[in-house]
Nucleic acid binder design. Structure first.
Lengths: 248, 248
DNA sequence: CGGCACTTTGATCGTGGTCAATAAGTGTGG
DNA sequence: CCACACTTATTGACCACGATCAAAGTGCCG
């Protein structure tokens, strides 16, 4: 067994702004700029296009991890189911992100499409071949994994110490920043997740999420035609709330 | 700038069972078994021994990240301070673990000794040299980073959906498992953290942690001469509580 | 128009936080 | 060896944030 084989199966779902297709808006962002053209071409050759309807599962928790997915468009929710039926979201992923690396033979999380999702799938054997052929992919994964880790640890702190409103503010800002990173300028943003989805990410009930958003709207920090569409009117106020500055 | 330099600074504190000294009990465990002897020797040469008293800081949040630490003995708490004074623990680290890789130029977390800690420090320039000389270290870090990520995501789920007692049960079991992984057989375990330290990791007040432990003792799942010393009497009961099996 | 899924808002409840008092260790100096 | 101060743990009483239960309200698609 190569060390690569020892390492790769340990990886959990990993976030990337890796884009494999010309149509992907994130083409110029982040990760794919680091990949040499020949590597990118090889990766694209190995990839197989797939489409998923809203609420369809890209893969399920416990399923054999037979490949990875690179999102082209749409929003995906990574979630974990507890034995007694409770469930939690681990995070959201967007166009350009990479997911489905499983630490074990089985997926640790399920991945559910929140809207219409198109993705590229790369099977395990093709992936092994790519890794052998392009060792730089290993470095790239280390980069992604480190980003994931930092994000997860930030979220740990938020869950441990933030109030309900602080968590919702931090979440909204993270959505906006994710969109901006991927070239979506704003000022109006689409939230594909329902209040329940958000609650499961933040450890809140859907009603509490709704109340927090209503509160922001009432204070004039936010507006939008529908509940899933919003425009930030006072980003500073939200940022202050989301940065753990309760007394400021 | 090499890709290595692009990647390494992104890494957050990384856990390892990397042992650099003969005296370390974890010598045979996990990571160091993967490192060839010549790499291990080079790493040991670059390391500088340091000792820290209880509650001393190995490094502080916001400080320049001038090197990494490999714990030889003792327990360390990684913590993050919010602008308004609230603080949260990101995790505990034990003998054999590696910490201090900073995603930026500055440490994202502080590291505080919970008991008497001895550690090896490797400066940034020595580290760069080691990385250039032994590319295998990069793979090793990927492995560690992936383990860290999986652990952080598990903790996310626990914080989002577990009740106070479930979190404390999960924490106690994780301490026991960490000790066992490192060759400590039990059945009596030392908890170096105070109730407040545990609370800051689990998002609970110190009183709630105390009540949970008292509850376990009352039910006969736990006993111990002092509050920081405990023996598991009914590990199955704790495991059931800690695995999200509320109705079982 | 009806049916459905999602959201909003209100009323009430409960887990866990906060405040407070006591107890149990732990280390220091007389 | 004890007295004292100090830290940590435990337990109780009360309170608040957010969960739960319930009922409209809204928008969408057939």
């Amino acid at each position: 067994m190569t060390l690569l084989n020892a390492v790769r199966p340990m990886l959990g779902p990993v976030r990337a702004w890796l884009s494999l297709c010309d149509a992907c808006e994130a083409r110029e962002q982040g990760f794919c700029a680091l990949l040499p053209p020949d590597v990118l071409a090889d990766v694209a050759d190995a990839a197989q296009r797939m489409a998923f309807a809203p609420r369809a599962a890209l893969f399920r928790q416990g399923e054999a991890a037979t490949g990875i997915f690179i999102l082209r468009n749409g929003t995906v929710r990574l979630m974990q189911l507890l034995p007694d039926g409770r469930q939690a979201s681990v995070g959201f992923r967007f166009g350009g992100d990479l997911l489905g690396f499983s630490p074990q033979r089985e997926h640790r999380h399920g991945a559910e499409a929140l809207d219409s999702v198109s993705a590229c799938r790369i099977g395990r054997s093709e992936l092994d071949r790519l890794f052998r052929r392009h060792p730089i992919l290993e470095r790239t994964l280390l980069h992604l994994c480190a980003c994931e880790l930092a994000a997860a640890q930030d979220q740990l702190v938020a869950l441990v110490r933030f109030t309900a409103e602080e968590r919702v503010a931090a979440f909204l800002l993270s959505i906006v920043e994710a969109r901006e990173c991927r070239g979506h300028p704003g000022p109006i943003y689409e939230l594909r997740a329902t209040r329940a989805d958000v609650g499961e990410l933040l450890g809140l009930s859907l009603e509490t999420v709704s109340r927090a958003v209503s509160g922001f709207r009432r204070r004039g920090w936010l507006r939008g035609p529908g509940p899933q569409t919003f425009e930030l009117l006072d980003r500073d106020a939200l940022t202050k709330l989301a940065s753990g500055n309760a007394d400021a």
